[in-house]
Simulated assay, not measured.
Amino acid sequence: MEALITPEVLRWARERSKLAPEDVAGRLGVKPDRLDAWENGEAKPTFKQAQTLANVLRIPFGYLFLQSPPAEQFALPDLRTVGNAELRRPSVDFNDLVNDIIRKHEWYRDYRQQEGAEPLGFVGAYTIRSDPNEVARSIAEVLKIDEAMRAEASSWEDFLRLFIRQAEAAGVMVMRSGIVGNNTHRALSVDEFRGFAIADKVAPLVFINGRDAKAAQIFTLAHEIAHLWIGATGISNVELAQSQRQEARTEQFCNAVAAEVLVPAESLRRHWNYKVSIEANIGHLVRRYRVSSLVLLRRASDLLDVDQREIDEMYRREFARFRQRDSGGDEGGGDFYVTLRSRNGSLFTRAVINATFEGRTLYRDAARLLGVKVPLLRAVADKLELR
């Protein structure tokens, strides 16, 4: 029996999935021209084929019978500034990830309220009209981002780990993953987003796209934390936007704050060596501050008496290099339990485990929240020393 699906909806669902027609057709065991006929209304799939289509395209089966594609909106404000209209439509993976994180955030917020948690004073303590340097000083003071912390970090990953640990110690949920849930076949796209923040006074949250390079993840974390300090919830790509839209100004402001947090002006002036080349300085200082060469070049341009033509030329070279290379990101190493904690964040993971063993949360609900099977809950608690 033919399924009277709406061709326009099928085309929308297939484009939304970012799957090529050949890939969809292959999963259904039909030729691409057959799928094309369905999308053009020249033929209809069987009910079984329609059900398979819904599964492959990750949409509810009933969507295929709507008169027109459903209106989809981001669950969070979209502050991204890439000049690419295609990015304004969320991918299936992106939507599913955000919805999963929001579900976890709501659970954790309820948990914190039941614990009698007080609002965190730093969330929304400033506005976009504040001095970025003042906001940066506040962040550095609360999170203890200083020379001692930089000296303690022996690698990019180590610096990121310390940064996350100190943010969590202040009460910020930090989650870092490069995939949707635990599905390694659903990788997140760095081109689509790099991070987002939920500026909740009781349960502030930052998510970092773990597919990104380590230096980019570090800057994203600082950028999203700046979002919390000005009370601005939203999705970011952490680009240096030039638009005058309010969203772009918010991103520019958070970029400025993040740059000062990671590379304080006073510290950079003290450690810059005018006796050696700009390239030599950059090569040395990227390891001190654990930021990308692009961030350091921009800071040097803004703060130091350097040759702007040489800075601009090196910036163009470095920008081209960053655009060409793979992200090389990961989410905390090969250990299953460490990766699980990274994806869910230490605060959330500990809260779920505690609530479960205290009898306040069902084992099956806890397993669903953490993305593990019920028998693994005790192992998670033991391996991560959460009890």
Rank of each mutant, 00 (worst) to 15 (best):
D191R: 15
E157Q: 14
Q113G: 00
R137I: 01
L240F: 08
W229M: 11
E157C: 04
H185A: 15
Q217Y: 00
F196T: 05
A215P: 00
R165G: 07
S236I: 12
E157T: 03
I218V: 15
A232E: 14
I145C: 05
M149K: 05
R137N: 05
R194V: 09
P204F: 07
E192M: 12
R129L: 12
R194Y: 14
D191K: 15
V142L: 11
A215V: 08
G116F: 07
L188H: 11
A170D: 09
I225G: 01
G116Q: 07
G181S: 13
M149F: 00
N183H: 03
I128V: 14
L160T: 03
D131P: 03
R165Q: 09
F159A: 05
A167M: 10
R161N: 12
V190A: 10
A213N: 04
G195W: 08
K144S: 06
D131C: 06
K144M: 08
G124F: 01
A226I: 08
S177P: 08
E239R: 15
R165E: 15
V174Q: 10
A140C: 10
F207H: 11
A197N: 11
F219V: 10
G121S: 08
F163N: 01
A125M: 00
D110I: 02
S138Q: 11
S155N: 09
D146G: 01
S138H: 10
G124P: 07
F193R: 06
A197K: 08
Q113I: 15
H227V: 11
G231R: 11
N182K: 12
W229V: 03
F219S: 06
F122N: 01
A226V: 11
G121W: 08
A232S: 13
E115L: 13
E141T: 08
I179M: 05
L120V: 04
K201W: 03
E141W: 04
L120K: 14
I139D: 01
L228A: 01
I230N: 06
G231I: 02
H227I: 09
F196Y: 04
K201A: 14
R129C: 02
F193G: 07
V190Q: 07
Q217W: 09
R194T: 13
D110M: 13
R150H: 12
A148E: 10
G210R: 03
G171V: 09
F163V: 03
M173I: 14
T127P: 09
N183Q: 05
